[in-house]
């Protein structure tokens, strides 16, 4: 028997009995970051492939939402800070070793990029749009000469943004459940998948929907593969990581993860999309909403479970406060 008791009493708020540094703000922000990365990637990619007239929702309509999503994400991130008045300190230094730092700088670039990219398409989507000030109109027209370059930098930055949301967590060696290099690609693929689902949701064209159904199905398949791979990696690793995996294989996160993330968020939409591609008509909204819901749940479960996994006193049942 081994029993560990903290006898002097320790109930540090947010740390005991289980770490709870991050609540709903960070998972929401990670979800929106991934979603925006997905949307911007598809928009820029298909723009560069000259599909403007085929994939209008992807290239022109979806990006209009991205500044809003990013703003909500940033607001959530800001709300999470406990020493808010000092947030500008993020921008007085760059620390390459800190994913938080280069993530903050990435956001500083991608936010204006998303605004400019959206501005390029506003008139295509709303023909009666009026910029009010001719100077804005002129600036946008001037910038539009470099559209191609904007598209390329969007591909670059959306890749960084999509990866970063996963790397942010996997960089924490102190939390065994996050400490897997699979988390980067998993969040990237999930971000792309939610991006594709969002395009599916707003698209009016049969051809576009068909293509994005295909893309999404492929991405969901990849996600499932990565999830299986992640658990195989954990189970073949050290005792702390085996213990972290066990939280999902019989432990407290089993039901929520396999039902909401994998079942409703991945398998069900995959099934529906495959049926659709085979000719059964299901409103595209259903799988799209499910994928978005699954992506959000994935962030919530991963952020929460990571904080419950630890090195010291790792077997919670051993620990008495």
């Amino acid at each position: 028997m081994k029993e560990v008791a903290i006898t002097s009493g320790r109930m540090n708020h947010g740390v005991d009995p289980l770490l709870h540094a991050w609540g709903w703000e960070i998972p929401l922000y990670l979800f929106l970051g991934g979603l925006v990365a997905g949307i911007l990637f598809f928009s820029a990619f298909f723009y560069l492939r000259h599909r403007e007239n085929v994939f209008t929702a992807a290239i022109k309509v979806a990006p209009l939402y991205t500044p809003v999503f990013l703003a909500i994400g940033l607001a959530a991130l800001f709300l999470d800070l406990s020493h808010k008045l000092y947030f500008w300190r993020l921008y007085t230094t760059i620390r390459w070793e800190s994913p938080m730092s280069w993530g903050a700088w990435t956001l500083l670039f991608i936010f204006p990029l998303s605004v400019i990219w959206a501005a390029f398409w506003v008139k295509d989507v709303y023909p009666n749009w009026d910029w009010k000030f001719p100077i804005i109109e002129k600036t946008i027209a001037w910038l539009a000469q470099f559209k191609k370059w904007f598209a390329w930098s969007l591909i670059l930055f959306s890749g960084i943004l999509g990866m970063y949301t996963g790397i942010l967590l996997s960089a924490f060696n102190a939390r065994p459940f996050w400490n897997t290099s699979i988390l980067g690609p998993l969040f990237l693929v999930s971000g792309l998948s939610t991006g594709a689902a969002f395009i599916l949701l707003i698209s009016r064209s049969e051809q576009e929907r068909h293509r994005f159904s295909q893309i999404d199905s492929f991405l969901i398949g990849t996600e499932l593969f990565l999830i299986i791979h992640m658990f195989m990696g954990f189970l073949a690793s050290t005792s702390v990581q085996i213990h972290a995996a066990e939280m999902f294989l019989g432990g407290p996160y089993t039901a929520i993860f396999w039902t909401f993330v994998v079942g409703i968020g991945l398998l069900l939409p995959l099934l529906i999309e495959i049926m659709e591609l085979r000719g059964v008509t299901v409103p595209a909204v259903i799988p799209a909403m499910l994928v978005l819901f699954g992506g959000l749940m994935l962030r919530f479960v991963v952020v929460d479970a990571g904080q419950s996994s630890r090195w010291l006193y790792k077997f919670m049942e051993q620990l008495v406060f």
Binding site: A21, S82, Y86, F87, F172, N173, R175, L312
Partner: peptide
């Protein structure tokens, strides 16, 4: 204290749970 923004990354990163807000 005056540079800390309270992002809590360090709290999550400490395997000893030695930090708090």
């Amino acid at each position: 204290h005056d540079s800390c923004i309270g992002c809590k990354a360090c709290i999550a990163s400490c395997p000893y749970d030695a930090r708090f807000v």
